[in-house]
């Protein structure tokens, strides 16, 4: 028992619920504090960029969102692998919980990117290589969630969604590469790619850390909700079973 790895210990959903319940308030507090500090740095300390002026402040939420959009997909891919190969009992809970959160951060990256694009490029949407790849990533998230919700058998839906997630992780770099290639063909790279000065890099890193902690908080909470949901479902089935059982025995007694 003592040489169990952490993942093995966490494999038991009951133990996971206990540990995560203790961890959650601390994570939530830490992410709130760090995001608050990042916002203070962003608005009161960081200087305006000499090229982009104050709009560089959008970067402090745009870049962490885009980074988390990708990280959430990596997390889903790892969880999917854990489900299909190791049949880890929490892997699907993790994959399912991460999908809407990843999609939300992807959407946020798109919204802030387009709000940044308007003052920079004069239009809300530019087929910039990064915006385009993030948009395609958003479609992949929608596909994952749509596939899961359209298959009745939840265990099967989990495994098929995992197959799709792994296919996506193989193709994402290729999609990214092709979009970059397409973009350089049509227009010179513009806008969002400015070299980052230290006075901006530090608030950006603080903000990225805060948002990452927020992501893990949300993911942990979503996993807890999903475990509870599965318990409720199991109990309801047991209740129905028992009702039918007592019905049958009553009928037999007559």
């Amino acid at each position: 028992m003592t040489n169990q790895s952490i993942t093995q210990k966490l494999a038991n959903p009951t133990r996971f619920m206990g540990l995560s319940g203790q961890l959650l308030p601390w994570l939530a507090g830490a992410s709130a504090a760090i995001i608050g500090y990042a916002m203070y740095l962003a608005f009161f300390v960081a200087p305006p960029d000499y090229q982009q002026g104050h709009t560089v402040k959008i970067m402090f939420i745009h870049v962490p969102s885009a980074w988390l959009a990708m990280m959430a997909y990596v997390l889903i891919a790892i969880s999917s692998f854990g489900l299909l190969v190791f049949r880890h009992p929490l892997a699907d809970v993790s994959a399912k919980a991460a999908a809407p959160i990843g999609a939300a951060f992807t959407l946020l990256a798109l919204i802030t990117g387009s709000l940044w694009g308007k003052p920079m490029w004069g239009t809300y949407w530019v087929w910039d290589a990064r915006l385009t790849s993030v948009l395609l990533l958003f479609f992949l998230y929608l596909g994952l969630m749509a596939l899961r919700s359209s298959i009745e058998d939840e265990a099967l839906a989990a495994k098929l969604t995992a197959v799709l997630a792994l296919v996506g992780v193989v193709l994402l770099p290729i999609i990214k590469f092709s979009v970059d290639w397409w973009n350089t063909l049509h227009q010179p790279s513009t806008g969002l790619t400015t070299t980052v000065h230290a006075s901006i890099r530090i608030p950006l890193l603080v903000s990225a850390l805060g948002f990452s902690l927020l992501f893990f908080t949300l993911h942990l909470k979503a996993m807890r909700n999903e475990i509870l949901r599965r318990r409720v479902k199991a109990l309801r089935m047991a209740e129905v079973d028992r009702a039918q059982g007592s019905h049958a025995s009553a009928a037999a007694a007559e």
Binding site: L136, F139, L140, L142, G143, A146, L147, S150, I151, E152, D153, L156, L164, V167, G168, L171, I174, I175, F177, S178, V179
Partner: peptide, 19 residues
Amino acid sequence: KARRGGLLLALLVLPLYVP
């Protein structure tokens, strides 16, 4: 085994065709 299989298929597959 999916409901609305045809529409779903388009959503799943078209992003993979981008390259």
